Amino acid sequence: MQTILHPANTRGHANHGWLNSYHTFSFGGYSDPSRVHFGVLRVLNDDTVAGGKGFGAHPHDNMEIISIPLSGALEHQDNMGNRGIIRRGDVQVMSAGTGIAHSEKNHNPDQEVKFLQIWVFPNQRGVKPRYDQQTFRPEDRHNQLQQILSPSPDDAGVWVHQDAWFSLGDFDAGFATDYTIKKPGNGVYAFVLEGDVTINGQALHRRDGLGIWDTDSLSIQADNSAQLLLMDVPMSL
């Protein structure tokens, strides 16, 4: 088993006033050659956007882009005609493929929106762009791992062009469980949203990240009330 630990206070940070963003991997003005990606996981940004503010229309291509709101409401619009608002409990995905332009803004003028923006390298280039969002029941991740993303439209959650599975857990203090990695050769990047957990003997705290590979499974224990995101991804680009 191999691991890499990214404590919360080692992340890149950019505060633009309207946008306060923490970068687990190199992004924008933050560049660290040792922290460019974890397997096909390329971007993990922890963003807070001020009321009424947001990102103007901008392009992407050949990337799977996942947004997970933590609080507030995030408004999406793209050049395919999609418009939507996502809130805590929702997950949004875009397959940028041959090219897409979209904008994201805080839907509310008087409160912040907090969300995770995650980019995953696809296993197919030049696919037809698409957009989707789904709502998940928070009670379905109480003391269990709730799958929110997979490689298949026939499986639970939104889907992406990659052999990746994402799961969320909302754990009571003392809860313990195991997670079996979905595909040989995959690793898992664990990101602690709230609280404290111990994974395979490694203590983790709020917004810490831990990458684990060359193993088949993880043991997870909540040291207190905790929320956890697991990203099970191929390690080879």
Rank of each mutant, 00 (worst) to 15 (best):
Q2W: 10
Q2I: 08
Q2H: 13
R11Q: 09
N15W: 04
N15V: 03
H23I: 05
S26K: 06
S34L: 14
R35M: 13
F38V: 06
G39N: 10
A50M: 08
G51Q: 02
G54T: 02
N62I: 02
M63N: 07
P69F: 12
S71N: 01
A73H: 04
M80D: 09
R83I: 09
G84P: 02
D90K: 02
S95Y: 15
G97L: 05
G99Y: 07
I100P: 11
K105P: 04
N106L: 05
N108Q: 14
V113E: 02
F115E: 05
V120P: 10
N123F: 12
Q124C: 14
Q124K: 15
K128G: 01
P129W: 11
Y131K: 04
D132I: 06
R137C: 14
L149K: 14
D154S: 13
V158H: 06
V158I: 15
W159T: 01
L168C: 02
D172A: 15
F175G: 00
F175H: 12
K182C: 03
K183G: 00
G185D: 10
Y189Q: 15
L193P: 04
G195R: 01
V197S: 02
I212M: 12
T215W: 11
I220K: 02
A222R: 03
Q227E: 11
D232S: 07
M235H: 09
S236M: 13
